[in-house]
Each structure stands twice: as C-alpha cells, then as structure tokens.
Simulated scan of single mutants.
Amino acid sequence: MTYCVGLRLKSGLMFMSDTRTNAGVDNVSSVRKMYTWEKPGDRLITLLSAGNLATTQTVVSLIEEHMKAANERNPSIMEVPSMFAAAQLIGETVRDVIKTASDGGLQSEATFSATFILGGQVAGGQPRMFLIYPEGNFIEATSDNPFFQIGEHKYGKPILVRAYNEDMSFEEATKLMIVSFDSTLKSNLSVGLPLDMQMYERDTLKRGFEKRFLADDTYYRRISEGWSDALRLAFESLPDFQMN
C-alpha cells in the first residue's frame, strides 16, 4: 500500500508520496513513487503512483522507452502538446499494461491494479492535474475538486478537507500535507517514511523545491509532535458529557 497526494493551488501544484512497499510483514522496503520529466522552459510533468509495484514500474519504464522511439503518430510525453494529451498517453499505457498482465489468466485484473496522479504544465497551457484510473480513464482537478489522493487515503483526507485553501502558500501547504501523512502513518503500517515532496510554481516550467523527509527530520518531528499535542489540548477543552 502507499499514500500519495497532489494539491492544486493558485500559486501552482504540490506533490507528496511515501516510499514504503511490502510483500508481507517480513519483506518491507523503500521505493520511490514520484517521477518527473522536465524540459526547462517547455514543460514539467510529475507522476505519482500507487498499486501493484510491478505494474507501476512497467508503466513508467514504457513511458521512458517511448521517449527514445517517439514518432509523429506516437509522440512521447516530452512532445505531447498539452497536459490533457499527457494524461491520455499515460492512461493508454496503464490500460495496455494491465490488460497484458492479466491476459495470462492466472489472476484477476485487480491483482495488477495501479492508480496515478499526473500534474504539471506544458508551455502555452495552464498547470493541470489528473487522477488516472486502472482502466485508463481519468478526471481533472478543479476548484470544486482541488486535490487528489491515491493509496491509503482515508486517514489523511479529513485533514485536507478541513484545512485546505487554494490561496495557501507552499509553506502552509507543506505543513498541511505533513499533518495528513503523519495521521496516515500513525494509522496504517503499510505507509511509511521517507516522504518525497515536490513544489511546482505556476508558469516556471521547471522543477521547483524538492525534499525527502526522513524519520529524523527536525521539521517533520516538530509538526508530528505539535499536531498530537494540539489534538490533545483541543479534546480536553471540549465540554464533558453530562448524565442528567
């Protein structure tokens, strides 16, 4: 299992993903789930993945292989004219990979399931973000639906729903995402540190600030401990039930 979040802000986009993967309690390791393709001045495209690791890695490998053998009929992700076209390209790749893997007949398609968050900007367009399903179809983030989560999202969602604001600065959004991830980490052992974070500032068309939060990161520990203390104080401030 995993947990990934993409936020749509007025100032740009933010991404965060955990790195834990496991094949049973005795086989836990860390794998990067955030991938970025960049052509400074032309495009910045970031992909977050959740689901079967073999499936997600195959999708990413195929995207990169297509970059080496692109043609007019089959452009690579570095040549598509828009973020919508990039979402179509990845959606088709996901659908083909899952169909090919499931054609063996030994396991259901669900075994090979994978979900992705795609975000970025291509020159001439606006920053856009999409949620891509295992079937290859996708939806776009809007003002009414301004963030996407994939993987083990139920524990971290209430934080985002209550505190998200599209006018947030990147610094405020970082704090929000860490609280969301910390709540998930404390509730589900299949999600774990390190956490990878990336900021994309609107219209820059290049990588923004990136950071990997390790278990001993000072800021992460301050937010984690501070949030626990704040929740405890808030709970204690609520009126007790009266048995009348």
Rank of each mutant, 00 (worst) to 15 (best):
C4L: 09
V5S: 05
R8G: 10
S11W: 05
L13S: 07
F15V: 04
F15W: 01
M16G: 10
M16V: 05
S17C: 06
T19Q: 10
R20H: 08
N22D: 11
N22E: 13
A23S: 15
A23Q: 15
A23T: 09
G24I: 02
D26T: 11
V28H: 08
S30V: 08
V31T: 15
R32Y: 12
W37L: 04
K39T: 11
P40Y: 10
G41H: 02
I45D: 02
L47C: 07
A50G: 08
L53P: 06
L53V: 15
T56W: 03
V59G: 00
S61G: 15
I63A: 08
I63S: 04
E64P: 03
E64W: 07
H66Y: 07
A69M: 13
A69L: 13
A70L: 09
A70I: 08
N71G: 10
S76P: 07
M78E: 14
P81I: 02
P81Q: 01
P81A: 05
F84T: 11
L89T: 04
L89F: 08
G91M: 00
E92P: 05
V97I: 11
K99E: 09
A101R: 07
S102V: 01
D103T: 12
D103P: 06
G105V: 07
S108H: 11
E109K: 12
E109P: 09
A110V: 05
F112V: 02
S113Q: 09
A114Y: 01
F116D: 00
I117W: 03
L118E: 02
Q121G: 00
Q126C: 15
F130W: 07
L131M: 05
I132E: 00
E135P: 00
F138H: 03
A141F: 03
S143Y: 11
D144S: 12
F147G: 00
F147E: 00
Q149P: 11
G151L: 02
H153V: 08
K154A: 14
K154Y: 14
E166W: 12
E166Q: 13
D167G: 11
M168K: 01
F170S: 01
E172C: 06
E172D: 14
A173L: 04
A173W: 04
T174H: 10
I178F: 06
S183L: 10
T184L: 04
T184H: 01
T184Q: 02
K186H: 14
K186E: 09
S190P: 10
L193W: 05
Q198C: 13
Q198F: 14
Q198N: 14
M199S: 05
E201R: 15
D203S: 07
R207C: 13
G208L: 05
F209V: 15
L214H: 14
D216M: 09
T218I: 09
W227A: 13
D229G: 12
A234Q: 12
E236H: 08
P239A: 06
D240T: 15
M243K: 07
